[in-house]
Amino acid sequence: MMEKVKKIKSGDVRTASRLIRHLEDGMAEARATMKHLFPLTGHSHVIGITGSPGAGKSTLIDGLVESFRKKGKTVGVLAVDPTSPFTGGAILGDRIRMQRHAEDPGVFVRSLATRGSLGGLAKAVGDAIHIMDVMGKDIVLVETVGTGQQEVDIINHSHTVIVVLIPGMGDEIQAIKAGILEIADIFVINKSDREGSSKLRRELMAMLDMAPLSSFPAGWRPPILKCDNAFEPDGFVKSLEIMSQTIDDHYQHLIKHDLLGTRVHRKSAVELNEAIKCSVLEPVLAKLVANGELECMIEKLSKKETDPYTLAEEIAKRYLKAK
């Protein structure tokens, strides 16, 4: 196991990708390895990128990778796509847009399927970020599924969140309702070659004008960046230079105002929560499933012979030793 840790520290892609696989598959040894990796984390700047499917997230990431590479930074990308609820399979297609970096040893792209987890990310993403961090990646870019609603898990894992919007989605206000705007540190209006991008910009501005100042951490009002058409390389590259600079500025802002800690705290809370679920709740459930008790309880419940609260209390009494 220490061999694995050493390899990952040295940036070995095979070992890292395999470990991510074992985490996705829920294998116990992989968690044991994570115990050794966790203390080594804290180097990477983690950037989350969210926005509806087809907004151009993967294309932007491809451009950002180029921009960060030009500055000599190493980059990891975690791209999440949805698992089909019907077959359990998935097509992971984000990579198509990033293949020109496939041979650059300073870039590691790993695709993940959601495998039933809601919230826009895969369960293993948190640990996969740690792994890329230990590998020494300066930047870790995380692309969410992009189903819109409830896609807020990303804030628990990133230092900087970019929300990508495109004009002409009908009513832009929809996004505001979905609660996705509150999570943005930076807005990107993509495909500004399309009609309606100025209107979208005005609406966003108006929305930010209305927001209470207290909602801008230490005065960081999310900048709204317009990204030039990806099919016109000159403009696109320039847009991305500005974007990567803004991302750096945000990170510096977090550091300068001692805000990095609050983001790390947020991630720690979520990770502990997950780990407790995994070590406490899941084994109990597994036991109840294995000995058939759970099914009996469900039977009883559906016949209204008891209620869920009483059952849960009984289970708690059995498994939790009160001090």
Partner: peptide
Amino acid sequence: RCFRDAGFEVIYTG
């Protein structure tokens, strides 16, 4: 698509 429907995770690189 057929591999996805068979329950595999498919990386398509174009």
